[in-house]
């Protein structure tokens, strides 16, 4: 499941950058919105095939694992960008003006006034998106990346017990998604003191 882990972190960083780009206006925003729309309107399976077989036919040979991480990252970054954009849009303009009045630099402004509070607000949506990403990583079994679904496939082709193998697999995914939710909840408590003290969503 390191597949989903790597893709989560990389996708979050890329997606946040993209969200900032979306707000910057001009050509950059157009580029980012084309990227987001293109990814959000095509299935993950096709994206994975495109990256895996497409890159190979262009002469770039990558292992299935690298391709899987790459495709998942590209995919989840688009969704993260949309979520973060919503978060950034929810910051009242007055806050930014106040930050400017305090003489904050552009980087400080983005970090303290925009990104952190925005993240705090959209944190539940982000968490569920990343759980969905973990579930979506099952699709990577289709390009022979060694993850849980692929392993279950091996097991069932050796034992001829498909029903048992896949029931266990489904159970494992449920346990994993519950675990992930718990981890994100704890992480949220650790990261956002305001959320912890209020005990409610903002």
């Amino acid at each position: 499941m390191e597949l989903a882990g790597v893709a989560t972190v990389a996708g979050f960083v890329l997606g946040t950058l993209c969200a900032v780009g979306l707000r910057s206006g001009g050509g950059m925003a157009r580029l980012c919105s084309i990227y987001v729309e293109a990814i959000r309107n095509t299935p993950l399976l096709v994206q994975i095939f495109l990256v895996y077989f497409g890159l190979a036919s262009l002469g770039l040979r990558l292992s299935a694992f690298v391709v899987a991480v790459l495709a998942l990252t590209i995919n989840v970054a688009a969704y993260t960008a949309e979520i973060m954009r919503a978060g950034l849009d929810s910051i009242p303009p007055g806050q930014i003006e106040a930050g400017e009045c305090l003489g904050l630099s552009r980087v400080q402004l983005y970090w303290h006034v925009l990104l952190l509070p925005a993240m705090e607000r959209v944190y539940p949506a982000l968490a569920s998106q990343f759980v969905l990403l973990m579930l979506a990583s099952s699709v990577c079994s289709q390009i022979s990346a060694e993850e849980m679904t692929a392993v279950a496939n091996h097991v069932q082709s050796e034992t001829f017990r498909p029903f048992e193998a896949f029931i266990v697999l489904a159970g494992l995914y449920i346990v994993l998604s519950v675990l992930m939710r718990a981890v994100f909840w704890l992480l949220g408590l650790a990261l956002f003191p305001r959320r912890r003290r209020l005990g409610t969503a903002l």
């Binding site: 579930l135 979506a136 099952s138 699709v139 079994s141 679904t149 279950a152 496939n153 069932q156 498909p162 029903f163 193998a165 896949f166 029931i167 697999l169 489904a170 995914y173 449920i174 998604s177 519950v178």
Partner: peptide
Amino acid sequence: GTPPLVAMFLLYFG
């Protein structure tokens, strides 16, 4: 909590 892919495997192969 389960990916649709696994549900399909379960129904079709299982």
